[in-house]
Design a protein around this nucleic acid. Structure first.
Length: 415
DNA sequence: TCTGGGGTCCTAGGACCC
DNA sequence: TCTGGGGTCCTAGGACCC
């Protein structure tokens, strides 16, 4: 049996951990650039705020409803997430971290699953301050479903064990709420009279494959209790690394775009080194706002390395070069980003006939840089080309302190 | 004025090969 | 009238997830 442990309203809960005065108060968290609402506390949901609502449209209502509004603080959420995941490791070594706020646990061999799940829930809340829900079932899709029931149904108190594909519960779950069934598939299924998880579970998987695809077929089997989605104890080999941001204001100067792209390349390098992978290619993309009137432009350029790299100078060099290939003067750019692809681990690196044979010096430099930045805070040491002034840097006007990752932001306690 | 960021997997179609 | 068959690899785009 698998348990899905899911943090409730994760970002909003993180903001509340160090602000106990906000218990019972409505909270929303904004996306990067304070663009739209991406997390809401239970109280904010009850007031009718929707996921993805544009902030500038909700602004007046939020003010009127006295909602506490936060810019997203990923340093805080990432660290709180790590605490939750580490805590889950106390219950079983078999933890499959699925996202920043969810993990599957393999509970095979455990006795009283309900009691055990309640213990997990209680402990995580006590140790981290983050409330969680636990759903237990034989497959990942059913565990997701069980978690939903644990969270939403009165009387379940955040824990629910679903022994198998029980009709009484599957019939109560709308098709669009099944994990893996999105808007498009949901629309098609409804038109065929498939309205609930139960309806879907009763279809013939082979027929579903013909009419839809393997993904939906797997979902059907998972709902029937046959596990098709593997449990990944070790994180799977990453396919790509992306860093992109919208600008605070529109940017048309090439120098500023160069700074931005250099900064994103540095971040991508840190991520790559953190995962121990090297990139074969780097792609830079650039676009104007899809909403604004006026000329629209969107383009990307890719540069392939003779030998896979992950050191920041090499990434910045190529990113700069790629940017020059797609930059058009006279446009108001809204966003830029970079993507590292063709990721390989050290052992899979293919040596180039032409590249310099010894890279140990570069690696040493990067290791020192990463270590300093880890210890003394991000960007303690950084590349000059990524800019100092950064007028384009995203707006985050309601940022909370980095309580757990920055010494100067530690919470004060008065006694 | 103002609308997120970062991922995965699958499929279809084209290029190319023998 | 009718123009092989079987493969691989790559890319773009769609759908989905949090």
């Amino acid at each position: 049996m698998l348990a899905l442990v899911d943090c409730n309203n994760f970002y909003a809960s993180c903001e509340r951990v160090f602000r106990p005065d906000l218990r019972g108060k409505p909270i929303v968290v904004l996306s990067n650039n304070d663009g739209c609402l991406i997390a809401r506390s239970a109280e904010a949901k009850a007031l009718g705020y929707k996921m993805g609502e544009a902030f500038f449209q909700a602004y007046r209502r939020l003010d009127r409803d006295k909602v506490y509004v936060f810019s997203s603080n990923y340093a805080l959420y990432g660290d709180m997430s790590a605490r939750v995941m580490r805590s889950l490791g106390e219950f079983t070594p078999l933890v499959d971290v699925y996202s920043i706020d969810e993990a599957f646990l393999d509970l095979s061999g455990f006795g009283d699953l309900d009691a055990h799940s309640r213990d997990i829930k209680r402990s995580i809340e006590q140790w981290t301050g983050i409330p969680v829900s636990v759903g237990v079932a034989p497959t990942k899709t059913l565990a997701k479903l069980a978690n939903r029931i644990a969270k939403k149904w009165p009387g379940k108190d955040g824990v629910f064990v679903l022994e198998g594909p029980d009709e009484r519960y599957l019939s109560k779950i709308e098709i669009g709420d099944v994990w893996g069934i999105g808007r498009q598939t949901s629309k098609q299924l409804t038109s065929l009279g498939v309205d609930t998880a139960l309806d879907l579970a009763q279809l013939d998987p082979r027929l579903v494959r013909q009419k839809f695809n393997v993904v939906v077929e797997r979902t059907v089997r998972e709902l029937q209790g046959i596990s098709c989605i593997p449990f990944d104890e070790v994180p799977p080999h990453p396919q790509n690394i992306m860093v992109s941001r919208g600008f605070k204001n529109r940017v048309s100067e090439k120098e500023q775009l160069h700074e931005a792209v250099a900064l994103y390349a540095s971040r991508a390098g840190e991520k790559a080194r953190g995962k121990n992978v090297y990139a074969t290619s780097i792609t830079v993309f650039l676009r104007t706002s899809p909403f604004a009137p006026g000329p629209k432009y969107s383009n990307a350029a890719t540069i392939t390395y003779p030998e896979a790299v992950n050191d920041t100078p090499a990434l910045i060099r190529a990113a700069t070069q790629a940017l020059d290939m797609i930059f058009r003067p006279g446009l108001d750019y809204q966003k830029a980003g970079i993507m590292l692809t063709g990721l390989v681990y050290e052992a899979e690196r293919q040596a180039s006939m032409f590249a310099a044979p010894d890279t140990s010096k570069k690696e040493g430099l990067m290791a020192v840089m990463d270590k300093l930045n880890d210890r003394y805070g991000s960007e303690t040491l950084r590349m000059a080309s990524s800019g100092t002034n950064r007028p384009w840097w995203m707006a985050r006007e309601r940022l909370s302190p980095c309580y757990t990752t920055r010494w100067s932001d530690l919470a004060w306690v008065r006694v």
